[in-house]
Amino acid sequence: MSEPITAPITALGGARHDGLARIEEVGLHGMITLRGDLASKAVKAAVMAATGAKLPGQRGVVRGKSGTAIWMSPDELLLCPYAEVDATLGKVTAALGTAHALAVDVSDARAMLTVSGPAAREVLAKLCPVDFAPGAFGPGMVRRTRMAQVPAAIWMEQDESFRVICFRSVARYVFDLLGVAAQPGSGVGVY
């Protein structure tokens, strides 16, 4: 008989891989999908309530006092609060009021990884049809794309490390992919 699950379990148990780049699972991380009219006051207020950040522009990432707001599409944002998701979701819902918008806790549907180190750009560029050259992709930018066979969202932190979000069901696949792409001796030396 299996034991009942009492506490949330991360997708990969905090897995870590060292190669050309360091790949680590971030672990449990709050994520709230917010859909609505991004130009509306209610959505701006909701973003401020959840993250303390201003509304990100097209393909932008804005870091606030209590979380990060990520632009996903012209009518969708992803809010990544640092603290309790339930409480933050409550604040978002309250800020939205009667506006035509949707806010949902999707934390358990996703997995988050970091890819860091000097060859991080190259490791990701092997897997995605995206220009990760230093002039083309930098901190504060997000790109939703395809990573080998699965969709992923990738953004860059201020320290030039990457954050990768994928669906939880393919977390192992993405981790292994990154591991292969970061295999020592497989550097291309483009960036």
Binding site: Q58, R59, P74, P129, R144, T145, R146
Partner: peptide, 11 residues
């Protein structure tokens, strides 16, 4: 035209 990305066919 929505996210301003030059996306290749596989995307």
């Amino acid at each position: 035209p929505y996210c301003g990305v030059d996306a290749e066919e596989t995307e």
